[in-house]
Structure formats: structure tokens, C-alpha cells
């Protein structure tokens, strides 16, 4: 895999001094006979937004779920904040899990709770703070993600798709995580909503100092907010690095992805924008 090697070395040179938040080494994940991940390597550095791309069914979600510990792994190591999740005792594992927030693709809000209660759920379970402070913090989170305050007492079934994403993001941010996982945050949003959401993630990332791991199909998101991009194909990360490097990569899948009809339209505008 020459592509991987070049991408890795350039990448490592670029961010030599950053701390690695997620380190995946030789990960093997499979279901039955089929291997979804085959000796996969990936690094995510502190303070960056990593965009993660890959064809449908290539296992982007599986990798995310493996990192989160929702899918059993067959071999390899996943270190988050320098700790191997599977080797931790339950108390430390809980502590680790409170340092990340997850935005699921369809929000996964608890349908029987209001937006405010959804946001307070992790606070209530994991922290001992007064109801008043919880209320205030929940309202603060609601405002941070750009929801109107009267959404607080609504149930998830009463929200539009974009509001569900925002509410789910507010819940993911409830415990002020250092690491945020986003699974296709802009899918199902209109272009204006998607652009706003990108901007929101970028703002929050800067003001809260987050590290963001973002699975996405949205080329616009890749161009606008991702510091680095990793591409998944054939069970491996075929390239990771700044988007520029991936655009120049000769790998056939990357060429098809970025220089297909839709990709080309965007890359050309992106190129114009860069040249000006």
C-alpha cells in the first residue's frame, strides 16, 4: 500500500507535535466470514476535525462503532486518550466514555423525554449537581447549538430533522466532552441547514477546544471544516492527510470519489477559491 505510506509520513510530519487522541492499530473487525476491517490503522490528533469518507457499505459506521466499543473487534488495538478501552476496568471505562460525545446519524434522542430532559440525562446520571444548574446548563447547550429556547420542552417527535440533529448535538455536548463523534451530521439537511451545521460544528470546535471525528458523505463539509481527511476502502484507510493530498492521490477510488461528476464540480470551485 504505497498510498497509505506516503500519506502517513507526510501527515506525521505535519502534525508531529500534536497529541494522538485516537490511535487505531491493525484493527480487524468481521461479521461471520466477511472481514469489514482488515488491519486498519488510523490516527486522530488533538484539536483537529477529521473527516472520514468511504463508499456506502465500506464500514465507516462499523469503524466508528468499533472505536466506541459497540462492535467487538477480532484483533488489533484501539487507544483513546492513550488508554485501551477494552483493557480498562468498568469504573475507568465509564470515566473514559464520559470524555466523548456521540451524535448518531438519526439523532437517537430518547423519544419519551423532552429535549431538555434528553440533554440532562447524562448530567443526571453521571454528575451530582442541582436541578437549577442542570436547567441552566441545558438551556445554555440548547442555545449553543442554535435551537430556540421553546424547543426545550418539546418531544423529539415534534421536531424537524434539522432540529433533531441540533438537539442530539446538544446532548452529545452535555458533559463537555473533549472528543466528539459525528455520524453523517449533515445527511438529511438542506444545503443551507447543512452549511449552518458545518459552521456550528466549526465554531463549537474552536470555542470548546473539541477534537471531532466526523463520518460524512458531504463533500462540502470536507472542504469547509475538516483539517484532515481519512478515506476508507477495502477494509483499510487508503489515505489520510490534508484534503489537498487526497485530491492529488492517484488511488482509483479516491479519483472516482473526488473527481466524479459531483466531486469535480466541487473541486473546481474549491480550486478557484484556493487560487484567488
Amino acid at each position: 500500500m504505497t498510498f497509505t505510506n506516503t500519506a502517513l509520513t507526510q501527515d506525521q510530519m505535519a502534525s508531529q507535535d500534536s497529541e494522538v487522541i485516537i490511535r487505531v492499530r491493525d484493527l480487524v473487525v468481521g461479521f461471520g466470514e466477511k472481514l469489514v476491517m482488515n488491519r486498519l490503522n488510523l490516527d486522530v490528533y488533538r484539536g483537529e476535525v477529521l473527516g472520514f469518507v468511504g463508499g456506502s457499505g465500506q464500514g465507516k459506521s462499523v469503524l466508528t462503532r468499533a472505536i466506541l466499543g459497540l462492535v467487538p473487534i477480532r484483533a488489533g488495538a484501539i487507544e483513546i486518550f492513550g488508554q485501551n478501552r477494552n483493557a480498562l476496568d468498568p469504573a475507568n471505562r465509564r470515566a473514559l466514555e464520559q470524555r466523548w460525545g456521540v451524535l448518531f446519524q438519526n439523532g437517537a434522542l430518547f423519544s419519551g423525554l423532552t429535549v431538555k430532559q434528553n440533554i440532562q440525562m447524562p448530567m443526571r446520571e453521571m454528575r451530582h449537581i442541582s436541578q437549577k444548574l442542570m436547567d441552566e446548563l441545558a438551556m445554555l447547550k440548547i442555545e449553543l447549538v442554535g435551537l430556540s429556547l421553546d424547543a426545550a420542552d418539546k418531544f423529539p417527535s415534534e421536531l424537524s430533522g434539522g432540529m433533531v440533529k441540533r438537539a442530539a448535538l446538544a446532548r452529545a455536548l452535555a458533559l463537555d466532552p473533549e472528543l466528539l463523534f459525528l455520524d453523517e451530521p449533515t445527511s438529511g439537511l438542506d444545503p443551507i441547514g447543512a452549511a449552518e451545521f458545518d459552521e456550528l460544528i466549526s465554531t463549537l470546535q474552536h470555542s470548546l477546544g473539541l477534537t471531532v471525528f466526523m463520518v460524512t458523505h458531504d463533500l462540502d463539509s470536507l472542504y469547509s471544516i475538516c483539517d484532515r481527511v481519512a478515506a476508507l476502502a477495502e477494509g483499510k484507510v487508503i489515505a489520510q492527510g490534508p484534503l489537498k493530498n487526497l485530491l492529488e492521490s492517484p488511488h482509483p477510488w479516491l479519483k472516482a470519489y473526488f473527481h466524479g461528476v459531483r466531486g469535480e464540480r466541487l473541486t473546481s470551485t474549491f480550486g478557484d477559491y484556493r487560487n484567488n
Binding site: Q98, M123, R127, H128, I129, S130, L133, L137, L175, D176
Partner: peptide, 8 residues
Amino acid sequence: LAASRLLE
């Protein structure tokens, strides 16, 4: 927030 009550 990890400080819970101590924060308040």
C-alpha cells in the same frame, strides 16, 4: 462538570 457539587 466532573467536579459535580464542588463546582456549585
